[in-house]
Amino acid sequence: MLELRLVQGSLLKKVLESIKDLVNDANFDCSSTGFSLQAMDSSHVALVSLLLRSEGFEHYRCDRNLSMGMNLGNMSKMLKCAGNDDIITIKADDGGDTVTFMFESPTQDKIADFEMKLMDIDSEHLGIPDAEYHSIVRMPSSEFQRICKDLSTIGDTVVISVTKEGVKFSTAGDIGTANIVLRQNTTVDKPEDAIVIEMNEPVSLSFALRYMNSFTKATPLSDTVTISLSSELPVVVEYKVAEMGYIRYYLAPKIEE
């Protein structure tokens, strides 16, 4: 038996919007730690890792570890039927083939049940090793979204370079080139507006902008984004999910052959 009650139901709505375009079908894993998901896109270039810790739910009951295969497009359709202020409860029976999403309005005058069919998904779980990253950049998520959107109108690939001067985002295409440099800036009124560049070693890596743009669908979840880079390793683009967890996107670099 599984019963997870999330008072801030809009978080789950936003989480789905952040991953449904990248991944079609995925297993949601439920354990005493929390509600989690790990899935790759169909071309195995990007991986998304989601964790919503059990402590973040108002009520969290998970009698045994459960893996539920869901079509994220269908799940998104159902969650779109929840109001932004609704409390969302996820319910499932052990060994059952459906999951129920219950939406309660804040005033308790409307209660809706949506039952969705589960599916069997053969997915391989990858081990993500702990890595020391050469450079870590924290910036406003809206700024990162703007940069990815702007650069993708010029080229297909972004080169992200971190030096002691700052972080540079570059692209090139048929019509020309573009370079955007951000310098560290911590003298801001609000901490979420800061640009913090932690450089242990300079690093420069190339990534497909199509994926970066897809990651920025998570922008409504968090005011800030953290980008962790190491030579010849996948980049990690992380958005916190309130106080309860995170969405981490891993993207394999383009490497000169």
Binding site: M40, S43, H44, V45, A46, L47, E124, H125, L126, G127, I128, P129, T157, S206, A208, L233, P234, Y250, L251, A252, P253, K254, I255, E256, E257
Partner: peptide, 14 residues
Amino acid sequence: VNQQRQITSFFGKS
């Protein structure tokens, strides 16, 4: 030429 790598060439099955 920059070749797109796959995530599976960095992270193995757990």
